[in-house]
Design a binder for these strands. Structure first.
Length: 1031
RNA sequence: GGGCGAUUAGCUCAGUUGGUUAGAGCGUCUGGUUUACACCCAGAAGGUCACAGGUUCGAACCCUGUAUCGCCCACCA
């Protein structure tokens, strides 16, 4: 065996084992093999990361948890498949590539054309897919890399086509109008996510719309207010609330209620608001009522400048408490007006060209840019005497994140999926518990969102994505279609009444322009929403729609692990798509994990640039440390906050990560003034600099734990090698050898069994933090701090050695298998080295160890070993040990000075502790002189009182009585406090009468015990005082 | 505006159906070259469990309200 370094060297180990695992193909799953072996499958499909950029720690958490489950189940004997892949992320990826192209070459996508742009995005995708896969591999993710899928590859494309075709066949696809966020600069629609709001200085214009043929008692004008006067050209109505009085009444009642309930401080403000409301009511209610009546009467107003009569309508969208109480309705350019238009059957007049200029519907203003038109319109209104007034006002304006230009709401033709039945099926799956969401509170957002059953707009005005498989054909008779597609069931068509054309949907192949002889078919240019293909991920990756072996064996997958922000966009869609395509839910379990936040409490994201590359952490601390830290931090309901900083690669100074420097490709160290590279380094000159690791306390702790584990193993292996006893103890049955287990052996085996149970239960219920904590505490506090320490003494005693060796090896062997799913590399490293020394393992009937821990069996708890009594007994030993150590520390006794002590206790405890005498010597440097009721108390001693025992440490000549008295009186005070509380409790009749028997008895016992401790402590105190005096 | 979550030691967080004296890591302090580990060992100090009520024999935990913070969704002529 090669020499074991004092510190675990992660870099070398990771490289070696990653290669080994890959060559052995342990992570390759085979449905045939699984079936033949009668194994159940355990399957996870990775939430495919976007190819927009590299992974950050948020992904690292997601992937770590998946790998924990995967490795756990693999060891448990499941045929395990973790299917990896990446997502094309339509809008985001195209945006990244377009932006870069513009920055570097000053070109827009219109300059290079569709084909060229798509080629550039593919190149980008290749680059980042490679990087992402490498990141996953560095983390130790045990994916079946042969099955890596991309949402835009041929396999996924086929599934997308079939899904679309199925929806089309079932009449669930339709075409409608929808307002999109239009970026007039880039001439593209952008998603809501890519829109930010910014307050800009603007105006609020009040405009009079003349009433057509007003009756004598009626006003001549309706006044509306707007921040975007140019949209008036597209107005198709003016709305007023149907019953303004009710609205005012309701507001007044509410305000009065609030005032009654409010604090004095708030009352004033609320009263002011009430007054304003009442004033407004007085001034406006009359005219609003009149307008409402006129609206019901079907009256019209004249749209200024356009001279187009438009109706006055009643609609609840008009808020009596806002503006003039009347509102102009521009359905084609305002989301709310669009809805009003829908329910009131108003025409929708689109005013915009795609480049942001006004179109022919804008009359004389056609061809003008928006802002120019605004100025002209305001001037013309003023000229016509219809502009009542202009106010200055801050306007919250939507801007495109990408071009930083204001967004225009733009009415676009759009493909939709009818959600009614689909959404219902996905809701049922959760309410009927075919899908269980953990933690359960997230089921609510899932159900709420689906419950709205809003139709799903699936088209995107992009070039990067699955092009919608629809072709338009005009002037074609149905007979011609039937003839052209005779005998084919993969082509369907539908008549588009509105535009006098056919929609032809093709499932398997792209239709040629002349597929219908004598006619020209034109393909829909838009691509599908990214989520349309992501929705199929659990079954498309398994080969659907083909009836593959994989689909039959692995579907439904076992669990989906993801973050809460895509429960609706992704999880819900997968549920309904899985049900629609396969008739089964895609997964029976969904686990929602916390989010990773940065030091400012903000979620890590690519757009913010605050995402930290896991590789930067791995370089410094190792993959195991990264994984352990993340697992340790994954609790039920708290997001994971990570405070991270750079470490200067030259002088190791910690350089604080700030919002500013964390997105820079290079940063200067404030101490040594040298510049270092960060994860954002891309240019050659930046990459040439030394790269700074990212450091953080949580990772350090985890790294230390890995090292602790390494050293525990190192100790075991150093002692086992060359041992004479080994050959006898390792291969034979423990019982046959008549090897006797001591108290500490039974204790550690009992604890090991309990921990094994807890870990399995924790993993199966997704209590990751608990699992990590349980193992951390067991390994460090129990195995290392106690068992290993105690074994040291036994290893030098040939009689005691065999059992010690046997148990030591067994616990280590079990411990690393328990830990392997979380920290795969260090455990494999230990496993392989242990294999060299102890090829056969097991406490009672040794068997050959697997060649790799990845395929070793996961430990089963030896429940027979669990013994509460033994654990309690051992606990007493620990208490006494702690007491002795405390005295040494308090009395400043040098570590090498031997101490002597006696323990005053009952015979039972004495008998229990006596055999532990050697351990007090080896672990506390103290000799136990006597145990029992009648021990001889040393003349000068330091005393510690614990439950059921008093420890007297002989300190003749050494004792610092003052310190001792101070400590003792503090103890007494504390005990008195506890006793007082407890006495009060037990004097309380209600408690005595109502509390359960066992609680009551426990309280009584505890009081008795405390009282004993107190009197012992008082006695000791007096003794000390005497000693002090006599001295 | 609607929904969800959080508030526990200087910092970051545990605390599993309500039941003795509320825990850990880091940091701080004291003492250590204990032949596995200084990425370590032994010990100590440090908390009115955000606040106010309530339920209960008993509350960090359950209920109501307040304050502060965060997230999601909707909306802002």
């Amino acid at each position: 065996m090669t020499e074991l370094p004092k510190q675990y060297e992660h870099k070398d180990a990771q490289q070696r084992w990653a290669k080994f695992w890959d060559e052995k193909g342990y992570f390759q799953s085979d449905p045939q093999r699984g079936k033949n072996a009668g194994k159940k499958p355990f399957t996870i499909v990775i939430p495919p990361p976007n190819v927009t950029g590299a992974l950050h720690l948020g992904h690292a958490l997601n992937d770590t948890l998946q790998d924990v489950l995967i490795r756990y189940h693999r060891m448990r004997g499941f045929e395990t498949l973790w299917a990896p892949g990446v997502d094309h992320a339509g809008i985001a990826t195209q945006a990244v590539v377009e932006r870069r192209m513009f920055e570097e070459e000053g070109k827009t996508r219109h300059d290079v054309g569709r084909e060229n742009l798509v080629a550039r995005i593919w190149a980008w995708k290749e680059q980042y897919q490679t990087r992402i896969v490498n990141q996953l591999k560095e983390m130790g993710c045990s994916c079946d890399w042969r099955r890596t899928r991309f949402t835009l590859d041929a396999v996924c494309a086929k599934a997308v086509r079939h899904f679309f075709f199925g929806l089309f066949r079932d009449q669930l696809i339709y075409r409608g109008k929808r307002l999109v966020n239009w970026d007039v600069h880039l001439q593209t629609a952008v998603s809501d996510d890519e829109v930010y709001h910014e307050e800009v200085a603007g105006n609020f214009w009040y405009i009079n719309y003349p009433v057509i043929d007003p009756k004598p008692n009626e006003p001549a004008f309706v006044t509306v207010a707007t921040t975007r006067p140019e949209t008036m050209l597209g107005d198709t109505a003016v709305a007023v609330h149907p019953s303004p009085k009710n609205v005012f009444d309701r507001f007044e009642t509410e305000l009065n209620d609030e005032i009654r309930a409010a604090s004095e401080k708030e009352k004033l403000e609320l009263a002011t608001r009430l007054e304003a409301l009442q004033t407004r009511r007085k001034e406006m209610l009359g005219s609003l009522e009149t307008f409402a009546a006129m609206a019901r009467d079907g009256r019209m107003v004249m749209l200024p400048l356009m001279n187009r009569p438009i109706p006055l309508i009643c609609d609840v969208w008009a808020k009596p408490e806002l503006g003039t109480g009347c509102v102009k309705i521009t359905p084609a350019h305002d989301p709310n007006d669009y809805e009003v238009g829908g329910r009131q059957n108003l025409p929708m007049i689109n005013l915009l060209n795609r480049d942001g200029t006004l179109n022919e519907n804008a009359g004389v203003y056609a061809g003008q840019k928006n802002m120019k038109a605004r100025t002209m319109i305001v001037a013309d209104l003023e000229k016509a005497g219809l502009l009542v007034k202009t106010e200055d006002r801050l306007i919250d304006l939507a801007h495109s994140d990408r071009s930083k230009t204001p967004i225009e709401p733009f009415l676009n033709d759009q493909w939709f999926v009818k959600m009614d039945t689909l959404a219902q099926s996905a809701m049922d799956a959760v309410t009927r518990e075919q899908i269980k969401i953990t933690p359960p509170r997230y089921a609510k957002s899932y159900l709420d969102w689906l419950g709205e059953k809003r139709d799903w707009p699936i088209g995107r005005q992009l070039w990067w994505g699955h092009q919608i498989p629809i072709w338009y054909g005009q002037n074609i008779s149905e007979l011609e279609l039937q003839k052209a597609f005779a005998g084919r069931n993969d082509v369907l068509w539908q008549w588009d009444e509105e535009n006098n054309q056919w929609w032809i949907c093709s499932q398997s192949e792209d239709l040629a322009g002349d597929a219908v002889p004598g006619h020209k078919l034109v393909r829909e240019e838009d691509v599908l929403d990214t989520w349309f293909s992501s929705a199929l991920w659990p079954h498309s990756t398994l080969g659907w729609p083909d009836s593959t072996e994989e689909l039959a064996y692995y579907y439904p997958t076992s669990v989906l692990i993801t973050s809460r922000d895509i429960i609706t966009l992704w999880v819900a869609r997968m549920a309904l798509a899985g049900l629609f395509n396969c008739g089964k839910v895609p997964f029976p379990q969904v686990y929602i994990h916390p989010k990773i936040l940065d030091k400012y409490g903000e979620g890590m994201s690519k757009s913010k640039g605050n995402g930290v590359d896991p590789v930067k952490v791995i370089d410094k601390f190792g993959a195991d440390a990264l994984r352990f830290a993340l697992t340790y931090l994954t609790t039920e309901n708290q997001d994971v906050r990570l405070s991270l900083d750079f470490e200067c690669p030259y002088c190791q100074t910690i350089v604080e990560q700030t919002k500013k420097n964390r997105i820079q490709p290079r940063v200067q160290c404030p101490k040594c003034k040298k510049e270092f590279a960060t994860q954002w380094a891309e240019k050659e000159e930046d990459k040439a600099l030394a790269s700074a690791p990212v450091v953080g306390e949580r990772f350090e702790v985890a790294r230390n734990f890995c090292n602790k584990l390494w050293n525990a193993a190192r100790f075991v292996m150093m002692n086992l090698s060359g041992s004479v006893a080994l050959s006898q103890s390792r291969n034979d049955d423990l019982a046959k050898n008549n090897v006797k287990l001591l108290l500490e052996d039974k204790w550690i085996l009992s604890r090991l069994a309990t921990v094994t149970q807890q870990v399995a239960a924790g993993i199966e219920s997704y209590h990751f933090s608990e699992v990590a904590r349980t193992l951390y505490d067991f390994a460090w506090d129990e195995f290392c701090s106690f068992y290993v320490e105690m074994v040291k003494y036994r290893l030098s005693d040939p009689a005691l050695r065999p059992a010690a060796e046997r148990v030591l090896t067994h616990v280590l062997d079990t411990l690393i298998r328990l830990l392997h799913p979380i920290v795969p590399f260090v455990t494999e490293e230990i496993w392989s080295r242990l294999n060299e020394i102890v090829p056969q393992r097991g406490l009672t009937s040794p068997v050959n160890a697997a060649e790799s821990i990845t395929i070793a069996p996961y430990p089963q708890a030896d429940t027979a070993a669990i013994d509460r009594n033994i654990e309690d007994q051992f606990g007493r030993f620990q208490e006494v040990l702690r007491a002795v150590r405390e005295v040494r520390s308090r009395q400043n006794v040098p570590p090498k000075t031997e101490m002597r002590f006696v323990v005053k206790c009952d015979a039972r405890l004495a008998e229990l502790l006596k055999p532990m005498t050697p351990y007090f010597r080896s672990m506390a440097g103290a000799i136990a002189d006597d145990w029992g009721e009648n021990v001889k108390i040393p003349a000068l001693s330091s005393n510690v009182t614990i439950s059921g025992a008093e420890i007297f440490v002989d300190l003749a000549g050494l004792i610092d009585v003052t310190a001792e008295l101070a400590k003792k009186s503090k103890d007494i005070q504390k005990l008195e406090g506890f006793i007082k509380t407890k006495e009060a409790k037990l004097a309380n009749e209600a408690f005595v009468g109502k509390a359960p028997k066992d609680v009551l008895n426990k309280e009584r016992d505890s009081l008795t015990d405390l009282q004993k401790q107190l009197s012992a402590a008082r006695e000791a105190f007096q003794l000390l005082e005497q000693q002090a005096k006599s001295k």
